[in-house]
Amino acid sequence: MDDSILQMINSTLRVSTPLLFAAIGGMISERSGVINIALEGIMLCGAFTAAAVSLATQSAPAGAAAAVLCGLLVAAAYAFFVIEIRADQIVAGIAVNMFAAGATAFLCKILYQSSTSTPSLALEYRFQSAPVWMAGGVVILAWAWMKYSPLGLWVRFAGEHPEALDSAGIGVKRVRWFAVLLSGVLSGMAGASLSIFLASSFTRNMTSGRGFMALAAMIFGKWKPIPAALACLFFGFSDALQIRLQGVVLWGSEPVPVQFIQILPYLVTILVLAGVVGQSRAPKALGLPFRSS
C-alpha cells in the first residue's frame, strides 16, 4: 500500500484515541441519564496528572493509573453535585471545566514554576502505541457490557425509565453514580493519552474542545458504542487530514483553509441532530435528576 495512506491511517488512529476513551465514557454517563459536559475538564485534569506523575516516577503506566484515579475523583465530585444535590447538570459541568482549567494551571505553576506547560518527558517514559489498543478494547468491552450484562441493562434503564428500575428494587442513584465514575475513569485515561502519548508534556488547556468533540461523536453515534467509535474515527480522520493539509494548495492559489475542516465535526453533529443525516435520539430521562419516593 502507498506509504502516505499507511501514515494517514496511523495518525488517524492515534488522534482518535483520546476521543474514543472520552466518547465511550460520555456515552455510559449519558445512557444512565446524566449529561456529562464535564468530560472536557476531567480530561484536562487527567492530562495534567498523567504528565506530572510520569515525570516523577519515570513510568508511563504509573502516570496513566494516576490519571485514571484523578478522573475518578473529579467525576465523584461532579456526581455528588448532580446526583445527590441535584445541581443543574450543565451548570455544574461548566463549573467543573472552569475549575479544571484554573486548577491545572495553578498546580503547574506551583510544581514547575510555569503556568503554560510541564517539562518535557523523555520518549522512553511515554506510551508508544498501547493506548490505541486499549481504546479499541474499551470500545468492544463497552459494547458487550451495555448489551449483555445486567449492570449494562440497568444503566440503560436508569436513562430511559428510571421509575421502572426503581420499582424493580434497584437504586437509580447508585447506578448513575457508577456510570458517572466509570466515565471519569475513561476521561482520565483520555487525558493521559493526550499528554503522555500524543504529546510529551501537559500544556495549558491542551484538551482544546476535545471533550466536546467526544460528546459530538457520541451524539453522531446515536449514544451507541460502535457507531460512536466510528464517529470518533471519522473526526480523528478529519483532524489528521487537517494537519496534513496545512498550507497545501489543492486548487487556485490559496492553501486550504483549515478552519473549515476544523468545524466539520460540529456541523455534522448539528445536521445529524436535525435529522438531515440519519436520526439521533437522546435517552429519555437525560438531564433529569431522580428523586426516590
Binding site: A95, M98, G102, A103, A105, F106, K109, S115
Partner: peptide, 10 residues
C-alpha cells in the same frame, strides 16, 4: 496567578 479567578468562579 490570575488562573485562580477560574477556580473562584467555579
Amino acid at each position: 496567578t490570575r488562573d485562580i479567578s477560574l477556580i473562584l468562579q467555579a
